[in-house]
Amino acid sequence: MNTKIENKLTPVRIIAFIFVALWLVIAMFPFIWTLWGSFKVQADFFSKADWSNAIFGFHTEKQTGGFFTMDGYYGSWIEEEFWRAVINTSIVVFFTVLISLTFGTLGGYALARSTYRYAFWILMAGLIFRAMPHMTLISGYLQPFFAWNVWGILPTTIIVLVAINQPFTLWMLHSFFLNIPKDLDESAMCDGCNRFQAFRYVIIPIMWPGVITTGLFSFLLAYNDFTVTSMLLSDENETMIPAIASFLGTVQEEGKVMYAVAAVVSATAPLFFFVLFFQRQIVSGLTAGAVKG
């Protein structure tokens, strides 16, 4: 009987369906279009005469002989050495997530278990730091980094990204640890453990769901960052996003736009699989912060 009610077509349901379907098209179409178009030549993807060229690849067939072309990918990955940027991104993202989580877990645990007033003030400071537009901090970094000669290298960027990431990580893990009953580690301490042993043997084995969820968001921040990486990395250490931005400067010549399109698709593909595998964790992470305020 339940299914009958669920499948009944009411006007409200039809409107809801149309509305949701419309949103899905708006959300997905740009990605599908660009993915498809990245295997075409510029004359097709940017076809003023007829947009269907981009679908059927009229010029692509004429220019390359095939229905699809990998020219854009070859140009960006090999000629423009986009693979370097991919390696740099992997290094930056890996270490940023690792260090953020280590620092954040320790700090978040301490904040969740402390009953003193300063814990509240630290969380408040974290909230204010979270609101700082990243660009305002950048102008404070440049002069000292130039003076100490640490500008342009990956470790500097990693530590800056860790710092920028820290307020969010702290908040998230703090509210996660609040949900783990205090009695758990306190009973361990009664049995003769000190705080570190209680953390090591009681908390660490059960903290992974929260840590993974937080890690996903740290990953996104490091992967998507443009502000910090574009200002703090030298050309040879560039990560993917600033590399794409610098493509844009040179794409005016015929054919080069497709390099940027291919690079953009290359940078989006990992995120696609990221959502595919971690959808549930991302949703729970988004709502966890919200429900607990």
């Binding site: 620092f103 301490a110 630290i122 102008s139 307020p167």
Partner: peptide, 28 residues
């Protein structure tokens, strides 16, 4: 939680925020 343990646990996190967020704001 004792003050000293709290400090030990939160020191890495707090120092990185202090060095790379609080000080830059002042220096800006």
């Amino acid at each position: 939680m004792k003050h000293s343990t709290f400090l030990l646990f939160s020191l890495p996190s707090l120092s990185v925020m202090f060095l790379f967020i609080a000080i830059p704001i002042v220096s800006v």
